[in-house]
Design a protein around this nucleic acid. Structure first.
Lengths: 186, 186
DNA sequence: TGAAAAACGGAACATCGTTCCGTATTTTAG
DNA sequence: CTAAAATACGGAACGATGTTCCGTTTTTCA
């Protein structure tokens, strides 16, 4: 692969991530290309449609979120690793709230993303959760999907009227995982 | 008011409602004008911006949903009236799921809609709920906001993977309102 | 080092929201 | 009823955006 290709690809992904974050997914393509220091032609050769660029950025961030799991697991005790990763996950979902409409718009370009998300994120949490349960620090009657779904719901709800309500709710939820450690509800 | 104004206004609202439903809120303005049998100039005189048209359609449908309440109350016994209205409300929320992103986009043109929604919908449910509670057909430890919020969450969640899950969840929720009629959790 | 291959940049095109103004319709004064 | 005034209409024209295209530049490799 030619070195300029790799360089432009990286610049485009980084630029798109920044622009999407500040101006939303409907930001002009020209702005993304300019910020990356390339022409629109270059952008379109790598990402034939706008949706391809959105999907690529999303995939990139899924990776970053999932990859954080083993690192946190190595650096912290079980529960703390789980809690920190869930906060990281919550930040990811919150940041991507603007993308949700596009992802669920029925555009076939986004269809594979759901599968990719599950395939990457579930294996990331599971070890964290199992370690925490095994250490007796988290109740045993919740599974990975429960947690992922609950935190996503809390962060992506349209009823989050400012003031960091979502953050508080997630913190509360995480805290709740500790109780009942020795008192299964099953 | 000139009669052609009234006629074109009606045609535009009806056309916009239909086009938004089939092609989403991003449908071309020209398509809406053409379907209404008017020029784009006429459309823009009545709705200076695209968002004004969206807001007008939304307000119209809020009215239709709210106005259904007293009619159902007159035609059915208390609980049945409440249940039927909630299904009507659920259909409204589901149909407007595509509008949600636009409404929460921060566009100031949509800011008043939230207030209008509450001002119209809450007074619509409250009598239905109170009648059902008074008749002993619904538990007394839920209020109108609880119900509106819960049904809206169930219908607008991004985790509704097809197959009418939202409908089933809402039906379940409505059914749940009956239990505990004589067993308050307060 | 010099073609050949690959990628680049940005002008050009199609489509969209929005504006503008000459024309058609409706109202109203006499 | 009629003619002038007021109002509204239609759609061409404008600016911005996604996308395509091709002459030019960069990179590769023999």
């Amino acid at each position: 692969m030619r070195i300029d290709v790799q360089r432009n690809l990286d610049a485009l992904l980084q630029s798109a991530k920044a622009v999407f974050a500040t101006s939303g997914v409907d930001a002009p393509v020209r702005e993304i290309a300019e910020k990356a220091g390339v022409g629109v032609g270059t952008l379109y050769r790598h990402f034939p449609e706008r949706s391809d660029l959105i999907a690529a950025v999303f995939r990139h961030e899924i990776d970053a979120c999932a990859d954080a799991a083993p690192i946190l697991a190595a650096e912290h005790p079980p529960f703390e690793a789980l809690a920190k990763w869930l906060q990281r996950y919550a930040a990811f979902i919150t940041a991507k709230r603007g993308l949700a409409p596009a992802l669920h718009s029925g555009n076939p370009a986004f269809a594979p993303l759901r599968g990719y998300f599950e395939q990457r994120v579930q294996p990331a949490v599971r070890p964290l959760l199992e370690s925490a349960v095994a250490a007796g620090e988290v109740r045993s009657d919740v599974d990975a999907d429960d947690i992922l779904g609950a935190v996503a719901s809390l962060c992506s709800s349209a009823y989050n009227d400012g003031a960091g309500r979502a953050e508080r709710m997630v913190a509360l939820f995480i805290d709740g995982l500790r109780y009942g450690t020795h008192l299964s509800t099953k």
